[in-house]
Design a protein around this nucleic acid. Structure first.
Lengths: 331, 331
DNA sequence: AACTAAACTGTAATCGTTAACAATACTGCA
DNA sequence: TGCAGTATTGTTAACGATTACAGTTTAGTT
């Protein structure tokens, strides 16, 4: 493998000069720099990142940590996240992917191994990890799950606003009897989405009857059972907001199973806009959570943070968008 | 950050001894080793991988390269692959993820940066990359796409066999008029699946009429148009094998659009078993391609290859499994 | 007890970079 | 021309680990 010393020999300069020339130091005369750059290119020189890391104490790797990669249904998630990240990430940074649940020793998560860390968080249980990263002083951005702690950089979708918009739309279509299948208890996203649901109903002076609040946990199955319960009500709702698409799919299957036509008899609204929301039958009307955008923005923030570590953290909200498809009918 | 020299000072030995003790060298007396290990643990020692890499010339990173992460529909793909890989990968290996299409300079793909490379290949166009990796002498395993070259370690699903099994099943359900929507022309997988299709029909002495071979390119839209063409035939088939699930979904939508009931009027079979195959309406009967298993096996092969580079390459086939759901009716 | 071999530990060089400091080469001005 | 001051380049020591080689114990044999 060829090193800066090889280049130095060919160029007739010291390896230090080569290092400086290749790293854009202002100390080098233009002609020297050009010559060295040309020679380096000709010799197909590629720097040894281990050596670089050793002395600069930077690792050139960004860690992307998921709550879990062993389980969890939302899979388009990962792709979208990686897309967004690699879109803005410099080519000579490496992106490594890990499941938080498979990190054995927090001690291995050190500044020397990660220049920055992105946590794609889906659960409260990530907090221990997040705080470890924070106390280690590694530049950190938490994506997707809203944190209470204002001391950590956080990029999330504006769930509440997005849900409200979706419900407003359903109201405009003539619906008046709304139910909600709630998300996993204790999750910030669950309460945010529920809030958006209530915001809209209150704004339209619609009643909030307790029997229209069905418990769920974001799983397909929970959507199925919650929907079943709602359909068995004496006076079923005409529209159901499901706190995520997975539950909406479960709900839709429940409707089929109970012979309730979607959307004629029950209209359905989801949240997330997972890839297959477009291909359910009928296609699911849902609130699009722009994971790629969140990841991209988060990565930009992380890069900033890496450059000026002193920066004070922010909470950023990314706008969702309503994907109107075929599961909400006009009444 | 604490180094082996710090440990050496505390333990009252040289840093060499520490290095040896911590790396399982047989030269170290058991008591010394134990004492050093205890001290290292107490001091929360974590080795500096840059320094290690520099001298051992190993990078402790495995690269996972996808044809593209910017495009391509099959997204559950990535998750499953990462799952399978991280399942068998030692914790002190890093897994980095890249899109082949976003690799600017092949020169940057060097043995010194990757101990091994996994290519999750979806397209012929990956060959240039694959051969670069091979000529660089980096241990390499290509997953998912069958290669012609026997010189490269290759792990794929046994598509042909899997399709045959699915078709056999449909025949057992009484179907006799079979059409196929083919995959992207030129892809090995397309011809393999087509072969499986024909294998079964020939085995059952069923006729292969040319009008039942519809062109496709693995996209949802191509599935839609191909199905439309098939439905417009004077004598439409009773069962259609779609060379992947995406096209099956497109086909299903075409059926809806043309008022053809699935499966009563047309039975549908897919391939891949993407996550949402379970949640189409009706749920799609399909051939499961076990990406996680393929990745896991491939990673094991890669690890072997890294340990004994001389090993001669193999082509491994992983068995598919037929997922019987609701899109094939009995006639 | 003396000597040899085996078992263990230490010294110092090395990996490819960067960077503090030293050295040299240029420039302009008196 | 000589000299200060700046611009450019070189020397050398790190960074934290591994490893060839040298050195020191320890055990075993006579």
């Amino acid at each position: 493998m060829i090193t800066i010393k090889d280049i130095a020999r060919v160029a007739g300069v010291s390896h230090t000069t080569v290092s400086r020339a290749l790293n854009g130091s202002p100390l080098i005369k233009k002609v020297t720099r050009d010559r060295i750059e040309r020679i380096a290119a000709e010799m197909n020189y590629v720097p040894n990142y281990s050596a670089k890391s050793l002395v600069t104490k930077r690792s050139f790797t960004i860690g992307l940590f998921f709550s879990s990669i062993e389980q969890g249904t939302s899979s388009s998630f990962l792709v979208d996240a990686i897309k967004g990240i690699s879109h803005v990430l410099d080519e000579n940074y490496n992106l490594t992917v890990h499941g938080i649940d498979s990190v054995q020793h927090f001690a291995a998560i050190q500044p020397q191994r990660f220049d920055g860390i992105l946590v794609m968080s889906q659960s409260d249980e990530d907090n221990a990890f997040i705080y470890h990263v924070k106390t280690m002083g590694i530049p950190l951005v938490v994506l997707n799950r809203q944190l209470e702690d204002p001391g950590i950089m956080n990029v999330v979708a504006n769930d509440r606003e997005g849900v409200k918009e979706a419900l407003d739309y359903a109201v405009s279509q003539g619906h008046r009897k709304f139910a909600i299948i709630e998300g996993k208890p204790g999750f910030k996203s669950s309460t945010e989405r529920k809030q958006g649901f209530m915001d809209s109903l209150i704004a339209h002076r619609l009643s909030l009857s307790p029997e229209y609040f069905a418990a769920g946990d974001y799983s397909i199955d929970s959507g199925y059972s919650a929907m079943t319960a709602l359909l068995n009500l004496a006076d079923p709702p005409t529209a159901v907001f499901c706190s995520n698409d997975d539950m909406a799919i479960g709900a839709m299957n429940a409707c089929y199973a109970h012979g309730a036509a979607v959307p004629q008899q029950v209209s359905l609204i989801g949240f997330d806009d997972i890839m297959f929301a477009r291909y359910t039958n009928p296609a699911l009307t849902t609130v699009r959570k722009p994971i790629a955008d969140i990841s991209e923005l988060g990565t930009k923030m992380l890069i900033q943070l890496m450059q000026q570590p002193g920066q004070n953290p922010q909470q950023l909200f990314v706008k969702t968008s309503l994907m109107i498809r075929d599961t909400v009918t006009a009444l």
